[in-house]
Simulated assay, not measured.
Amino acid sequence: MALTGIALGDWRARSQTFDFRGQAIAYWTAGASDAEPLLLIHGFPTAAWDWHLLWQPLAERYRLIACDMLGFGDSAKPRGHAYSLLEQADLQQALLTHLSVSGSVHVLAHDYGDSVAQELLARHEEGRFALASCVFLNGGLFPETHHPVLVQKLLLSPIGALIGRFFSRDKLAANLSRIFGPQTQPSAAELDAFWSLIQSHNGPAVMHRLIRYMPERRVQRERWVSAMQRTRVPLRVIDGAADPISGAHMVERYRELIPNADCVLLETIGHYPQVEAPEAVLAHYLAFRQGREA
């Protein structure tokens, strides 16, 4: 059965806010308060609404927690801020503290969120976070396999601020068309919603600052990959193979580097499997969880 999801207006109506270092952060929760917590971490340049198709079926089983990270969606987007993946990991931990979540937490992450999840995994290995399991959707787990699109390269360049200023819905549509699967292109309504979230709080003005996650990944690469190689935390990759950014080529590298690699390839799916093939992602995620609970 196809998953119907949640319209953006309804999603926004369900949001709550909390203060993180003086900045207002939008967040969402669902599911029973005594269920196992599942933290959903979105990617760049979109927001937590990326999970809307999976939200209700996952909420029937787990206590869901998600936020628009600093600089994304309906959260604050301070100008001149030095955005950092490490700070975004701090934000996730602050949100869990705000919600009085104690004990270990499961994570499902995508894209930029994969890097935040890698930082949480490294903190777990260092005794600073309790991670129960982690599933990665398409993302740059290894800088050497990350193939950014042109606009990402331009945002990172000296003209990045100018590129962000002139970023538009049409440019978003053009870029997403290249990274979604050929048979699973975003609809006009989805593009409108993605753009509304990016545009909120003048988001294009900070895109060139958010993109600095790419060099930050290179700085943290050895620490993060080492944590993935030695951890006992159950890991899985569910990856859209047709993604030119972090598709089948990234999974090949994952299998080379990570012992007992648990990988699922969705052959015709692109960079946003939770949007393009939510039923498949749900099935493979639940199988991962059930396989460890049996």
Rank of each mutant, 00 (worst) to 15 (best):
L86P: 06
A117R: 03
L121G: 06
L131R: 06
G140F: 03
V101R: 08
L156S: 15
L141D: 11
N138L: 14
L120R: 05
T97V: 15
P158G: 13
N138K: 07
D111K: 11
S104C: 03
V105E: 11
H98E: 12
H147G: 12
L85N: 14
P148F: 03
D114F: 00
F129T: 03
E119L: 03
L121V: 05
H110V: 13
Q152G: 14
E87K: 00
L154Y: 04
H147K: 10
L162T: 15
P143A: 12
S115K: 00
I159M: 01
G103A: 10
H110D: 10
L154R: 02
D90L: 00
H98A: 15
H146G: 09
L131E: 03
H124M: 01
L150Y: 05
G127F: 03
C134E: 06
L141E: 04
H146T: 02
L120M: 00
A132R: 15
S104H: 02
D114V: 11
R128G: 08
L162M: 07
Q152R: 00
L150G: 14
L162F: 09
G139N: 08
P158K: 08
K153Q: 12
I163S: 12
V151Y: 04
L156K: 07
L155E: 09
H147C: 07
S115T: 04
L95Y: 11
L85I: 15
L95R: 15
